[in-house]
Design a protein around this nucleic acid. Sequence first.
DNA 1: CCTCTTTAGATATCTAGACGAGTAGCCGAG
DNA 2: CTCGGCTACTCGTCTAGATATCTAAAGAGG
Lengths: 261, 261
Amino acid sequence: MTSLPGVLGDLDPTSDRAVFRQIADQLRDAIAHGRFREGEKLPSEAELVEHYGVSRMTVRHSFSLLQGEGLVHAEHGKGVFVRPRPPVRRLASDRFARRHREQGRSAFLVEADTAGSHPTVDRLEIREEKAGQDIATRLGSVRRVLARRRRYLLDGRPVEFATSYLPLDIARGTPIAEPNPGPGGIYARLEELGHRLDHFEEEIRARMPTPTETKTLQLAPGVPVIHLIRTAYDTGDRAVEVCDTVMAADAYVLSYQLPAT
Amino acid sequence: MTSLPGVLGDLDPTSDRAVFRQIADQLRDAIAHGRFREGEKLPSEAELVEHYGVSRMTVRHSFSLLQGEGLVHAEHGKGVFVRPRPPVRRLASDRFARRHREQGRSAFLVEADTAGSHPTVDRLEIREEKAGQDIATRLGSVRRVLARRRRYLLDGRPVEFATSYLPLDIARGTPIAEPNPGPGGIYARLEELGHRLDHFEEEIRARMPTPTETKTLQLAPGVPVIHLIRTAYDTGDRAVEVCDTVMAADAYVLSYQLPAT
DNA sequence: CCTCTTTAGATATCTAGACGAGTAGCCGAG
DNA sequence: CTCGGCTACTCGTCTAGATATCTAAAGAGG
């Protein structure tokens, strides 16, 4: 039997705090103070049942709290572990700078290299479709669009799922409609087609994932997603692309530079 | 008895999907399709127990799943309700523009007015303290700082908790150390003190809240937070302020403009 | 008419089990 | 030495209750 008392305290029966919360508090505290390290196995349910003298369901309730907070994850047949924080990818606000396109590098690859990771693209799908209300509005009431879907992985782990929408009258029959749009990505092609890019607008939300997103991004419980919607405008102030991106929040830090003017 | 069969289907005993997941799926689907509207009460635990012929713990397990996704919230003694989406505050990237400061308005008030809401500031606390590792690094190895903490509320609901850190040698004895720093906020004061602002850098993360944050922001279960760290640089490229902000993710949309150059 | 009490119905917490299923190590049969 | 099976330990799912607490509405008493 593990000497749990050295790591975990006792329950306070006089407290009005629910038992399963007290247990969660102690575990959370122990993790925060490094008494359990990243990837380390927590005491098993049976051990905690014995240590605290409670029912197994109560211990499981505590675990499910911590799981909801993204602090731990359970592995069937093995145990409950402190969830390691994955390396984060930093997205700088200059990631679409023209100099990167002119070097023939796509934004994702540029970023991945600076992080020293191995990037992959996956589930590429290109279709012509009717845009939804929101996308159509952003594109200036354009309904017929080309949609480019793809999933990005870093060292084999899916981190991002993105869909680019482009007006059909711009993209149809161009390299943009091809699986590999060529060096510099679709933004480079747009400029070659005469749509010199002027600026981007990005909208950022954070929320819990839908079940579909959980599956696509293989998200652990308690990991939110960052939902980013980028609109690209050309120098004629026309919206030439809308990119809808869902990112695993534990894998990203976004970084922006704002002028003070 | 409510005619649940009209809204919810039956279980599939042959499916290998766990019963509590099947129930959650059906409820999630019903909510997504508007068969239960925002704020509407879901069937009670007892009704679902009867409808599906399962134990109460199983129904509760389903509810706790949906709660973790932020889809529903339970009110003790009343029922389980579809969580209404609160109105979101849109933070534009020009919110620190000098023209706003020159009009004597703080960034928070400017934003709140455009949203037509009633803003409040709360729990103002100003202290001199020793900066943590991270803050010190961002401020250029400055350890002694003035910390300005405050909570922001919108129509009475807490939405944001922020701490500004400023080097003591800049802020001590100035209006910045006062509860009300005067028109235009601390950025206006910094410029008066000779630190003309050049640009800001913002770092954005999303994660689940700590228990402290849950309490401070009165967050419902299943609502992530947006963690924003802004560093302000003056024209001498010195970091003159670091602002650490935790926002209720369901109350915000961040918006940025990026140049394409 | 107002206030306090009662009561029914709702969720919150907890127990003590049962069975299922994945993991890992041991150990014997081939 | 390898493969298979046994077994102990793990988490996953589900049951059938018990007790507590909260809410809202109905009822009793002033």
